Amino acid sequence: MPTMYLFGSAAPPVLQVAPIITDLRGRGWDVCLGLTPTAADWLRDDLRGLEELTGHPVRSHYKRPGEADAWPKADVILFAPVTANSLNQWALCLTSSFVVGVVAEGIGKRIPIVAMPCVNAAYAAHPQIERSVDTLRAAGVTVLYGDGGFIPNQPGEKRDYPWELALAAAEAKAFEGR
């Protein structure tokens, strides 16, 4: 069974992660869920259920040196939703959070990675967002942003997050070249 690391940061679509995991499990994926500390706090009442759903501990912090890894090796990493904060930290290799550290290192390990930001138009207007997207794409990350990916909405505007695009891209990336 292939393994997908599903990572999320604190944007509203992270609250939809349980049905996404159920969908992935139904497609034959072993799913390991990683969250930024704030996303983990948002989901704190659901963490036990998410662990039962995945069969793995939900991680939001680094393990201690010498501790065994609780997860199997990833065949692909899907980081969705990615906030402006996590996107910029990742592009700049600022690895204070577990999920950002794993994806930053994942580039060097050549793990297939797909990311789909979730930023509103006010954040998207900041020039660092495009620089970060360009940096990650140049490093081989599939970033679903703009045409064919996430289109920023106006602040406060509610729109469905295009999970199906992220899932399809992650599955394609996992089996690319096999």
Rank of each mutant, 00 (worst) to 15 (best):
L6H: 09
F7I: 09
F7V: 04
G8V: 05
S9F: 05
A10Q: 13
A11N: 13
P13Y: 11
P13H: 13
V14T: 15
L15I: 11
A18F: 10
I20S: 03
I21D: 08
T22A: 15
D23T: 15
R25L: 05
G26C: 12
R27I: 01
D30Q: 15
G34L: 00
L35F: 05
L35H: 06
T36A: 12
T38G: 13
A39R: 11
A39K: 13
A40Y: 08
A40H: 15
W42G: 13
G49M: 09
E51P: 00
E51L: 03
E52V: 13
P57Q: 07
P57A: 06
V58L: 13
V58Y: 08
R59T: 07
H61P: 00
H61K: 09
Y62N: 11
K63W: 06
K63Y: 01
R64P: 00
D69V: 10
A70Y: 00
A70M: 06
P72Q: 05
V76L: 07
V76G: 10
L78N: 05
L78T: 11
P81K: 09
T83S: 15
N88I: 13
N88E: 10
N88F: 00
Q89E: 14
W90A: 15
A91H: 01
L92G: 09
L92K: 14
C93N: 14
C93H: 13
S97L: 05
V100A: 05
V100T: 09
G101D: 09
A104P: 11
E105V: 04
E105W: 03
G106D: 07
G106S: 08
G108H: 14
I113R: 06
I113D: 04
V114E: 03
V114W: 04
Y123S: 13
H126E: 10
H126D: 08
P127F: 10
V133F: 02
T135M: 08
A138R: 14
V141A: 04
T142R: 14
V143K: 00
V143Y: 01
G148W: 01
G149H: 06
F150E: 03
I151S: 12
I151A: 14
P152K: 04
Q154I: 12
G156E: 11
K158P: 00
D160L: 03
D160M: 03
Y161N: 03
E164G: 05
E164W: 02
L165H: 07
A169M: 08
A169Y: 00
E171R: 09
E171D: 15
E171C: 02
K173C: 07
K173N: 07
K173A: 15
A174F: 06
E176H: 06
E176W: 02
G177E: 11
